[in-house]
């Protein structure tokens, strides 16, 4: 794991790029980047053939990039140069009291890519709220984004700030009223008290000690023209039992060439357990 200074924020980053067995030593070095410079060199040193660069953007609140690292980043490291990082305020990235608008996350993302020395357009994999960040990045920096792959995403379309803002405000209210462990475990669909307690503590910190909720409520929205400016293919995976699923039709209207896959009977949390399917769709998206 490397710490990269990007846009004034310290971001925790992992980068994975595996090479064939005859370069096992280099693969080891590529797998564990120590400093920003090493993280930037890892992809070049590991393999002389150009690999697509995948940058993963995780969801909001109590998660970070580690889950996606194990389920998506490491498995895809055989076909891509995979960059995963924790958003500001999340995981072991720098905790900040403000700066949680999409424009802030996108500025962090672009600065991170620059700091890692990545000059080619990247393929963004946006999960949940990370889908909003990835979409915003693709609209604002089409020259830096080669394609979009979205997993049960929040799309920054009209109404998104009300939808996400309401959920966050409900969570804040429950925490202020005194959330019990049973309620936390039910909300997180988590059987482990230990994991539920840790996730709740992280959620409490970011929701109650930052301006995140206010900033989401007043954040920007992409216009139809913004979606039209995006370069490269767009693929999305939705769970048909997810609250995000109604956006699938909107995405197809905004990006007629988008490919949309649907996982039956999967709600927003369960979609991410379908890792085998998601990996297959990402490989197809990359043409690998």
């Amino acid at each position: 794991m490397a710490t990269v200074h990007a846009n004034g924020v310290e971001l925790k980053v992992n980068r994975y790029c595996l090479v064939p067995d005859d370069h096992a030593g280099e693969a080891g070095e590529a797998g564990e980047a120590g400093e920003a410079g090493e993280a930037g060199e890892a992809g070049d040193r590991a393999d002389r053939q150009p690999r697509p660069v995948l940058v993963f953007v995780h969801g909001l609140g109590f998660v970070d990039h580690s889950g996606l690292s194990f389920t998506l980043g490491m498995p895809l490291a055989t076909v891509a140069d995979c960059v995963l990082y924790a958003l500001r305020g999340h995981g072991r990235s720098q905790f900040v009291a403000s700066g949680y608008r999409l424009a802030d996350h996108v500025a962090d993302l672009v600065a991170l890519i620059d700091a890692l020395g990545i000059a080619t357009p990247v393929h963004l994999v946006g999960c949940s709220y990370g889908g909003a960040v990835a979409s915003f990045a693709a609209a604002r920096h089409p020259e830096r984004v080669g394609s979009l792959f979205l997993v049960d995403p929040v799309l920054p379309i009209p109404g998104w700030t009300e939808l996400v803002g309401a959920k966050l405000e409900k969570a804040v209210a429950r925490m202020r009223d005194g959330l019990t462990m049973d309620e936390a475990m039910a909300a997180l669909e988590e059987w482990s008290e230990r994991k539920a307690a840790a996730a709740t503590a992280r959620a409490r910190r970011i929701l109650l000690e930052t301006s995140l909720v206010d900033e989401v409520r007043t954040d920007a929205t992409l216009t139809d023209a913004d979606w039209g400016r995006m370069a490269g293919p767009v693929t999305a995976v939705f769970g048909d039992a997810s609250e995000m699923y109604p956006q699938a039709a909107t995405l197809q209207r905004l990006v007629p060439a988008a490919t949309v896959h649907v996982i039956p009977e999967a709600d927003h949390l369960r979609v991410f357990a379908h890792t085998r399917e998601i990996l297959a769709h990402i490989r197809q998206h990359l043409g690998r």
Binding site: L18, A24, A27, G31, M74, P75, A77, T78, T275
Partner: peptide
């Protein structure tokens, strides 16, 4: 190097 090992896991 855990990465190749983890990358093969379901």
């Amino acid at each position: 190097d855990f990465i190749p090992w983890f990358s093969d896991m379901e």
